[in-house]
Amino acid sequence: MSIQHFRVALIPFFAAFCLPVFAHPETLVKVKDAEDQLGARVGYIELDLNSGKILESFRPEERFPMMSTFKVLLCGAVLSRVDAGQEQLGRRIHYSQNDLVEYSPVTEKHLTDGMTVRELCSAAITMSDNTAANLLLTTIGGPKELTAFLHNMGDHVTRLDRWEPELNEAIPNDERDTTMPAAMATTLRKLLTGELLTLASRQQLIDWMEADKVAGPLLRSALPAGWFIADKSGAGERGSRGIIAALGPDGKPSRIVVIYTTGSQATMDERNRQIAEIGASLIKHW
């Protein structure tokens, strides 16, 4: 067993022997301040990774656009098919120029040779490549099948209805392509620590998230040296922004954090800054 596999296998073990965790309302004060600064709703939840206990939450059962955070769930569904012998990570998928959609920095470079399922998941999570996500959605049967996968996990809230990039439209009061912070946090925890996926697939999923290259201005910008984070960000229309993450000190994750916002007129930089400040408060009061 590799060191990384050992780390993920012992996530519940280490967490069980940690000192009790206590909620700190100071972080919620910052979440509410972010709402004021952005002029928009902000949803927040913080779960203990081992027990699933909610440590703090704000608007945990209000719907927010998922945006690209759905790509972690998508690759979880792909990995479940791999575990069941219905898919192979090494299978190569070929596609054409007509398949390319807006923001496809990886797939646009491989029109000639195609990409493997493993490479597509890596591109979808680490670079948020939209064509990679659409190609992977095709392998599982489309958005409705991802929703069905989530329902089978016990998540009857999260739903995907459309493809990239239309799913980022974020129309107010439109339930399409949305989740709730509580539902997303619980589902992410199941994917990373539950028995739904094999140990190898859980490790692969967290490795992809740990290698995320496009979430630097968010929670990662607030992390002290030595902290662990595996995350996936999302951005959408109407001032929408979000991030889902597993993080913790001492090089291992111990909490799940989900943050979503929508309806702001603020710039992307300002949305990023507010999420980073929430992260800084979380870490300060850990």
Rank of each mutant, 00 (worst) to 15 (best):
68 S>C: 06
208 W>D: 02
205 L>G: 10
31 V>A: 07
263 G>P: 15
265 Q>P: 09
260 Y>P: 01
66 M>I: 03
240 S>V: 07
142 G>H: 06
207 D>G: 09
42 V>K: 08
124 A>K: 02
131 T>L: 06
170 A>G: 09
225 A>Q: 03
236 G>P: 01
188 L>C: 08
72 V>P: 09
229 I>Y: 05
69 T>A: 04
79 L>S: 14
49 L>D: 07
36 D>M: 09
223 L>Q: 14
126 T>Q: 00
76 G>Q: 12
208 W>Y: 01
197 L>Y: 06
285 H>W: 02
182 A>R: 07
53 K>M: 06
68 S>D: 00
203 Q>V: 07
209 M>C: 08
233 S>Y: 02
179 T>L: 10
215 A>P: 04
230 A>D: 08
27 T>H: 04
87 E>W: 12
93 I>K: 04
88 Q>K: 03
257 V>H: 03
251 G>N: 02
151 H>D: 14
36 D>Q: 03
169 E>Y: 07
153 M>D: 10
265 Q>F: 14
36 D>A: 09
162 R>F: 12
85 G>S: 14
189 R>W: 15
135 L>H: 06
271 R>F: 02
149 F>W: 12
248 G>D: 10
253 P>T: 05
175 E>M: 13
97 Q>K: 14
263 G>L: 15
244 I>A: 04
72 V>R: 00
75 C>P: 09
178 T>G: 12
282 L>C: 06
159 R>H: 05
135 L>I: 12
254 S>E: 03
166 E>L: 11
240 S>P: 05
170 A>E: 09
56 E>W: 07
270 E>Q: 15
186 T>D: 11
107 T>E: 03
47 L>A: 08
205 L>I: 08
24 H>V: 13
159 R>T: 00
177 D>E: 11
262 T>V: 12
91 R>I: 08
245 A>F: 09
176 R>Q: 10
169 E>L: 12
108 E>S: 00
109 K>H: 10
46 E>D: 14
62 E>R: 00
209 M>V: 06
165 P>K: 04
183 A>F: 08
71 K>R: 01
246 A>G: 05
252 K>G: 10
198 T>F: 14
42 V>M: 12
248 G>P: 01
225 A>S: 13
65 P>E: 10
42 V>G: 06
260 Y>E: 12
50 N>E: 14
274 Q>V: 12
150 L>I: 15
247 L>F: 08
71 K>S: 03
206 I>Q: 13
101 V>F: 11
178 T>E: 14
162 R>M: 06
74 L>S: 13
199 L>S: 09
31 V>N: 10
210 E>M: 09
164 E>P: 01
232 K>T: 14
273 R>Y: 07
131 T>Y: 08
116 T>Y: 03
285 H>M: 05
25 P>G: 10
115 M>G: 02
91 R>M: 04
58 F>V: 00
35 E>D: 09
173 N>M: 05
125 I>R: 00
52 G>Q: 13
238 R>P: 04
92 R>W: 02
225 A>D: 13
48 D>T: 13
81 R>P: 13
70 F>P: 03
112 T>W: 15
199 L>M: 06
230 A>V: 12
149 F>E: 11
251 G>Y: 05
29 V>K: 02
32 K>M: 12
204 Q>E: 02
77 A>L: 00
186 T>G: 07
262 T>H: 08
65 P>N: 01
59 R>C: 05
59 R>G: 07
67 M>T: 13
74 L>D: 01
164 E>N: 00
188 L>Y: 15
74 L>H: 14
83 D>P: 09
195 E>S: 07
142 G>V: 03
273 R>K: 03
135 L>K: 06
72 V>Y: 15
245 A>Q: 07
79 L>F: 12
123 A>P: 15
82 V>P: 07
226 G>S: 11
29 V>H: 05
277 E>N: 13
57 S>E: 12
216 G>R: 07
118 R>P: 07
116 T>W: 05
154 G>V: 03
215 A>R: 07
220 R>G: 04
207 D>T: 08
123 A>I: 15
237 E>A: 12
212 D>Q: 15
198 T>C: 11
24 H>P: 00
81 R>M: 01
76 G>T: 04
183 A>G: 07
157 V>E: 03
79 L>Y: 15
66 M>R: 01
251 G>S: 10
151 H>P: 06
117 V>F: 03
197 L>F: 06
105 P>R: 04
108 E>G: 01
114 G>C: 13
32 K>F: 09
106 V>P: 07
158 T>A: 04
255 R>K: 10
200 A>G: 14
271 R>M: 07
77 A>I: 00
195 E>P: 08
92 R>M: 07
91 R>S: 06
42 V>I: 13
99 D>F: 07
210 E>T: 11
259 I>C: 12
253 P>N: 10
121 C>L: 05
79 L>A: 01
58 F>D: 01
227 W>T: 14
281 S>G: 10
207 D>E: 11
189 R>F: 12
155 D>W: 06
286 W>D: 06
115 M>P: 11
197 L>T: 06
134 N>A: 07
161 D>S: 05
236 G>A: 04
86 Q>P: 09
36 D>F: 02
163 W>G: 11
59 R>L: 06
97 Q>M: 13
51 S>H: 01
110 H>C: 00
143 P>Q: 03
